[in-house]
């Protein structure tokens, strides 16, 4: 029963994502997020973090470096950017559900 519900949720998620991609909204959201991250200097910070990680571990193995960088990089996104982008996604999702009902 729970797996069934889980499957439904995964399906729903995939459908929503496909809808966002097809309507062009996914691209809009993604571009907007990229622009914000670039403007607030997050991109450079992540690059620097990656370089430091490479130097500290003296390794250029992608999975290992990514494992160390990813959680911190996610944390480094400013709250305003994160919340505003999530609000934007919610806005589009609300539209989807309103049109379907």
């Amino acid at each position: 029963m729970t797996t069934d519900a889980n499957n439904n949720l995964v399906n729903l998620k995939a459908q929503i994502q496909q809808y966002l991609v097809e309507s062009g909204n996914y691209e809009k959201i993604s571009n907007d997020l990229n622009k914000r991250l670039l403007a607030e200097g997050w991109m450079e910070s992540v690059k620097k973090l990656t370089l430091d990680e490479i130097n500290v571990n003296d390794s250029t193995k992608f999975p290992q470096i990514l494992k160390n960088v990813e959680p911190e990089a996610i944390n480094m996104v400013s709250d305003t950017t994160k919340n505003e982008v999530i609000e934007q996604i919610k806005f589009f999702l609300n539209e989807v559900f309103n049109t379907e009902q």
Partner: peptide
């Protein structure tokens, strides 16, 4: 809607991070 929004956001942000890290590596 809340949880799906967050997951979509996570999808995008992890893609961006993976892109940057792979270029740098």
């Amino acid at each position: 809607i809340n949880s799906v929004s967050k997951e979509i956001y996570n999808n995008i942000i992890t893609t961006v991070i993976q892109d940057i890290v792979s270029r740098e590596v």
